[in-house]
Amino acid sequence: MKKFVIEVLYPEYNNLYGDRGNAEYLQKKLTLAGYEVEICETSLFDEPKFISENVDLLLIGPCQEKHQLVEIETLKKYREQIENRIENGGVILATGNAFEIFGDYIEDAKGEKHECLKFFPYYAKQFSRLRYNDCSVGEFEGMQITGFKNLLSHSYGDNPYPFLTMKTGAGMNKETKTEGVHKNNLFATYHTGPILSLNPQFTDYLIKLVDNEYVGAELKYETKAYENRIKELLK
C-alpha cells in the first residue's frame, strides 16, 4: 500500500474556520483511493517533521492574529529549510492568514511592523476593527477555485508569483484581482473553506503533484456541492 504523509503545522493555533477539514478530506479521499495516510501534527515547540523526514504535503492553516506573530518567530528558525522545500518542489498548502507568513512583513493596526519570512515582497496591513468576509471564485490553470475569506488584514505590494486571478471578490486586497502565492509547489491563499473539500478538482491536482499515478477517488456529493457553489457565485 502506498503511503501518503501529511504534516499539519501548529494545530493548537492553526485550527480556525473549519480548516481541520482539509486534512480530514484528504484522509477520506486518499483512503478511498487505496493509500495508507499518516497525519502528523506538530506543535510550536517541536521541530517540524519535514525538516528531517519525508512529508508529502505540508498544511499550514489560519490562526488568530496574535498567534500568527508567535508562529512566524518560530518559523524564522527554519527559514532555510522552508526555502529548500519550496525550491525543491515540496508541496505546501497555506490557507487564511498563513499566506502572510511568506511575505515581507505584517503591519498591525497600531502601525508596528512585524518581519515575516521574506520569500516574497508583498506585505500585510491589519485593519483596526471590522473583518473582511467574502465568498469568491478565482481561476488557476483553467480551474475555478472557490473559498471563503475571514480576515483582519489585506496584503499589498508586489506579488510576482500569484496563485489565483479572481473572477469575483477581492484579490489579496480590494484593488487587485490577483490572490495568493504559487511558486513551484507552494500554494498560499487567503481562502479558507476548507479549501480542499470545497475544490475537489484542485485537491486531485495537489495529490497528483505528490503521486503522478494517483487516480481520483470521488466522494458522493463533492462535485454537486462544488458545481452548485460555482454556479451561484458566478451568476
Partner: peptide, 21 residues
C-alpha cells in the same frame, strides 16, 4: 436547503453512511 450538498459532503468526510442521506 441550498447548502444540502455541502453538509452531505462534510458528513461523509466525518464518517457517516451516505446511504442514509
Amino acid at each position: 436547503g441550498s447548502r444540502c450538498y455541502d453538509l452531505a459532503q462534510c458528513l461523509e468526510i466525518k464518517g457517516l453512511d451516505t446511504e442514509k442521506f
